[in-house]
Design a binder for these strands. Structure first.
Lengths: 239, 239
DNA sequence: CGACGAGTTGATACTAATCAACCCTTGTGG
DNA sequence: CCACAAGGGTTGATTAGTATCAACTCGTCG
């Protein structure tokens, strides 16, 4: 994992697969310099640290360099929905009229780069190529959130979990492709609040997937995945 | 409704409510001229016309000027999920590596402006202020899709429907604020596929909301809303 | 060693999908 | 002009998927 501002996790909407293989937008050294000048690096040493809260004044936009972060919204009646997990290369700090719409909490030690929101518009207009990467990233996230919506609306808990595990396995550093072993950085409760289920339901679904031979639980957070079978089962179609 | 490229429906993420009241980004006359030069106006005369399909080559990005459009994805097993309804001022044509990820279909006669995707990146980089409006729009849509996700994950069908009706009532031209009458441009099936329910479930929920005195059905598509009560019931919290 | 949070398992209840039948409106062709 | 078809909409009976509640285990850390 590069310990600096070098890449943004996104695949572009236009231009059909331009030879590149990584799902990352790479920043030129000039762009990196400009961003380093605008922002500063921050480290959160422990898991379960709050980075910002729903309704806080949105002072910063964050680029996650290393670690995993969760963003959730909680209803008055207490139910929590995790609307996104952020992995290295992701951007977080979604706001509405100067106020964060979610609460963000680390799930592991994290290092981030943060940029002052009040200087962001001017900066992006001055660096149209960087702004374009931010636009591509926003579109990427929009696409993924729509996909998540599709899963929530039309898939059973079992299939949602299968699809979720596959999503996690896309992040190198958490999935050992050689041995097919996924290290989950989040709890059952987190998974449940993300896929719209109860923690008990998630446990039961793990059990059923294991019984179906699609994975093997080495420990609650260590899973050996049969990716091909899971893919066929989750069946998120077309792509 | 202005019959031209004058505004984009979005509220910005940063700058705390800068005096403006409309939920639209207004385009300067230079910006309008540039966009008119890049794109062309198209009219779809009938409802249920397909604009593009999932997996088609993404040749265009669309700005909806007038009418309502639905974007959906369908799983191999046949279940359809509508991931967005588009209203005047919205942008559609979400793609992934040059391929549309959804299928878009008109729900009424529509006029759109369409821009060639292959010239878009160059254009946006040349007009950073327009690009910034596109970025703000993408962030706006991301926020709304996350909100939809929250509803799907944590609300009952009844509350999802209440929240949906309130969303619809935000679009002047479809909601007569004076008499509190909403004109739904979509069928029960469309509503169901959007809020993640069955058509029968939607009908029943309409019945229950009416029994609770939160609305009155003048006809299946004409609803007199008690907005305050609906808001209190749906209870999307915080803000 | 004890405590606490994460994880698991079982019993029960409930939300909402499914299946089936039917009504109502609209548009079309004989 | 009327009959009929077709699609949207509604209603009822049944069933399936999951949440909820409760109890209990496991593992880790002070």
């Amino acid at each position: 994992m590069p310990p600096d501002v070098t890449r943004i996790r996104a695949v572009p909407p236009w231009q059909p697969a331009f030879g590149e293989e990584t799902p990352f937008l790479l920043l030129s050294s000039e762009e990196q310099a400009a961003l380093r000048h605008l922002g500063t690096s921050i480290t959160f040493k422990t898991a379960r640290t709050q980075i910002y809260a729903h309704n806080d004044k949105a002072r910063f936009l964050y680029l996650l360099i290393d670690g995993v972060i969760e963003a959730d919204r909680t209803l008055p009646k207490g139910e929590r929905q995790i609307v996104a997990f952020y992995w290295p290369g992701d951007i977080l700090g979604l706001a509405d009229e100067g106020v964060y719409v979610n609460t963000a909490i680390t799930l592991s030690p994290c290092t981030v780069y943060r940029f002052p929101a009040d200087r962001l518009t001017k900066f992006l207009v001055e660096y149209p190529l960087i702004q374009h990467k931010f636009l591509v990233k926003a579109i990427h996230d929009l696409r993924n959130t729509q996909r998540q919506l599709l899963m929530m609306g039309r898939l059973s808990v079992l299939r949602r979990l299968a699809a979720f595990l596959l999503d996690c396995s896309a992040h190198e550093g958490y999935f050992d492709a050689k041995h097919r072993v996924l290290t989950l950085p989040m709890t059952r409760y987190d998974v449940a609040d993300y896929i719209g289920a109860s923690a008990e339901g998630v446990t039961r679904s793990f059990g059923r997937l294991e019984a179906m031979g699609m994975l093997h639980r080495l420990s609650p957070r260590l899973l050996e995945l049969k990716t091909a079978e899971l893919k066929a089962f989750a069946d998120l179609a077309g792509r």
